[in-house]
């Protein structure tokens, strides 16, 4: 049995809502993700997916319950947990290489030492030649590659991805899905990937966790055993896609 990397035990999260009420966003979520597993959390819009990511990343504290990563309780952000965000969270004032090298820079790593690993991850995500470009000059897909390289460059053992391809056009999205699997296979990490797109979930996941609407709880789980690289239109793919989709429909 493989090692448990991310463990959430009965976490709930409420925010203070309008005029004194409380908005219950997450309700009693328990999940466990194994080392180097690729888990996709599938949930409708505004159901608290970003909130879940922030709780695991240690950016916010759960109202009740607890989160551990690699056995350590999460009380604050931790460089061992990388995050790739929904919208471009790149720093527009930094070039591609400075964006990618941001984590090592925060750790105080020297410039020439940084340069080598930065180049390695820029090459890994296929952005060779764009080291000196600023994000504003890049396409949406390229920006997300930079975001992935930036998270990888810090060499975290856990990677949280918050709808990273949500605003890309369909063509680029397919391409990036292939890329993320390729990168993960080249440099294995425990990945928790959040999306509202069923096809994306089935393409990427070892396991799919389906969330309901607010207050959000876990509805069901699917193990995906289809061999990689997956074919979007194979019979098995389409039938699993339908099954997952039906489970999602019932939660609306």
């Amino acid at each position: 049995m493989s090692k448990e990397m991310i463990v959430c035990k009965g976490i709930s999260k409420s925010f203070p809502g309008a005029n004194g009420s409380t908005l219950e966003v997450l309700k009693d979520i328990s999940l466990s993700i194994n080392e180097n597993e690729f888990v996709v959390v599938l949930g409708p819009g505004q159901c608290g997916k970003t909130t879940l990511i922030n709780l695991i990343a240690g950016l916010e504290m759960p109202t009740s319950g607890n989160v551990t990563v690699a056995g350590n309780p999460i009380t604050k952000p931790n460089p061992d947990i990388g995050v790739v965000y929904q919208k471009t969270a790149l720093f527009p004032w930094l070039s591609v290489q400075s964006n990618v090298g941001f984590g090592p820079m925060m750790k105080g790593m020297k410039k020439d030492e940084r340069k080598k690993i930065v180049q390695h991850y820029i090459d890994l995500v296929g952005l060779t030649g764009f080291e000196k470009s600023y994000p504003i000059k890049l396409s949406g897909g390229m920006r997300q590659r930079v975001g992935i390289a930036r998270a990888y460059c810090n060499n975290p053992s856990v990677l949280l991805m918050d709808e990273p391809f949500g605003h890309l056009d369909a063509q680029t999205r397919y391409l990036m899905q292939e890329e993320v699997v390729r990168i993960w296979e080249a440099d294995k990490k425990t990945i928790l990937f959040v999306t509202n797109n069923v096809e994306e979930a089935v393409y990427l996941a070892d396991r799919i966790i389906v969330l309901s609407n607010c207050p959000t709880h876990i509805v069901t789980e699917f193990d995906v055993t289809l061999p990689r690289p997956r074919d979007y239109v194979s019979r098995d793919f389409l039938s699993l896609r339908k099954t997952v989709n039906d489970s999602l429909e019932r939660t609306r």
Binding site: L59, P79, G82, V83, A89, M106
Partner: peptide, 19 residues
Amino acid sequence: VHLWVAQTFGATRRQMLFD
């Protein structure tokens, strides 16, 4: 989100201000 990113990379408050 920029502040979150810096935090997840373990930036200190000083680094968050200056960087």
